[in-house]
């Protein structure tokens, strides 16, 4: 009796299927298609099964890029999340200073990513850059085109400058949403500033911080434009992150098969870690254990 109605419901969800198919499934299947074939030219391809996957998984350069990527994303989370929370806590709550802070914080987020790379190239140049020249004048040798450590410091500085404001804004939004009664009750209970943070502010920020961790992990794990413009992956391969490596294989060497296989593995890693973070943050502090 309900069958006819149920079938009509499919039409209602059809637009979603179409959008998801065009935006995600069809491109993804193209990649899957490439990953199992060896393509010599238009119309000339051979099915090779899992060969590309095997090749990619044993590729030393890819392993290096992967560990580099984990180190980078790990540092990003370790620095940006606490720093963002601290900024969020310190931000003025009302008045014109609050609006001004919000605008200033939002500025790095509004700049196109390749422009950010360019800004930092100039900013850190040892000869004319405000930062680079100043620090060299102070007697500290600093050149991100020559020293891998300096390159990493520069990329980290750029990343922290670019994305900590996002974490700060999320933390700020989370903090502003806490009802005043919590702080009043804490005063009545004689709680210290640390106790207020530990037992009220931090637990109440869990939702926004989950989003912040996920966004910063995914974005930093996929980072491309800024370091590509800034260091081009060098010196050597010292700042060649996963996506820079991927583009080198796919566009530079035109190895579509391995690049496609690698893309799928890349996608699965991001998915896996995002899920793990999400599950962990969902449980932390609620007393549920697995």
């Amino acid at each position: 009796m309900d069958k006819w109605q149920n079938n009509r419901a499919w039409f209602m969800v059809l637009p979603v299927f179409v959008v998801v198919a065009i935006s995600a499934i069809i491109p993804l299947m193209t990649v899957v298609n490439y990953s199992v074939q060896d393509i010599f030219g238009p119309g000339q391809s051979v099915f090779v099964g899992t060969e590309w996957f095997k090749e990619v998984l044993t590729d030393r350069r890819l392993h290096e890029a992967l560990w580099r990527q984990f180190l980078f994303s790990g540092l990003v989370l370790l620095i940006e999340i606490p720093l963002g929370v601290m900024i969020g806590l310190a931000m003025p709550k009302k008045g014109w200073t609050a609006s001004l802070t919000l605008v200033l914080l939002a500025l790095p987020l509004l700049i196109p990513w390749n422009v950010i790379g360019t800004i930092w190239i100039i900013f850190t140049r040892p000869d004319i850059g405000l930062f680079g020249a100043t620090i060299n004048t102070l007697g500290i040798r600093f050149d991100h085109t020559a020293s891998p450590l300096d390159a990493w410091v520069t990329v980290m500085l750029m990343e922290v400058w670019h994305w900590t404001p996002l974490v700060a804004l999320l933390a700020y939004a989370g903090l502003r949403a806490i009802p005043e009664a919590y702080f009043q009750a804490a005063r009545i209970d004689g709680a210290s500033a640390w106790a207020v943070f530990r037992y009220i502010q931090l637990p109440k920020m869990r939702g926004v911080l989950t989003i912040a961790v996920l966004l910063r992990f995914m974005d930093s794990f996929l980072i491309y434009a800024e370091p590509f413009v800034l260091t081009g992956g060098g010196p050597g391969n010292s700042t060649t992150f996963l996506s820079i490596h991927l583009v080198k294989i796919a566009v530079g060497q035109f190895d579509l098969g391995p690049a496609a296989a690698f893309s799928i593995i890349y996608f699965l890693i991001v998915l896996l870690f995002s899920w793990l973070f999400y599950q962990a943050l969902l449980r932390v502090g609620t007393g549920e254990k697995r």
Binding site: A181, Q184, D189, A195, Y199, I200
Partner: peptide
């Protein structure tokens, strides 16, 4: 905090991450 006043608000204020015991002990431990 030095007035020794207790106040109960319109909406229950509890410390989410603590047990009931720790909630009740909180003002004393502080």
């Amino acid at each position: 905090e030095h007035r020794n006043i207790a106040q109960v608000f319109q909406f229950p204020v509890i410390y989410d991450t603590m047990t009931v015991y720790d909630n009740l002990a909180f003002p004393l431990r502080n």
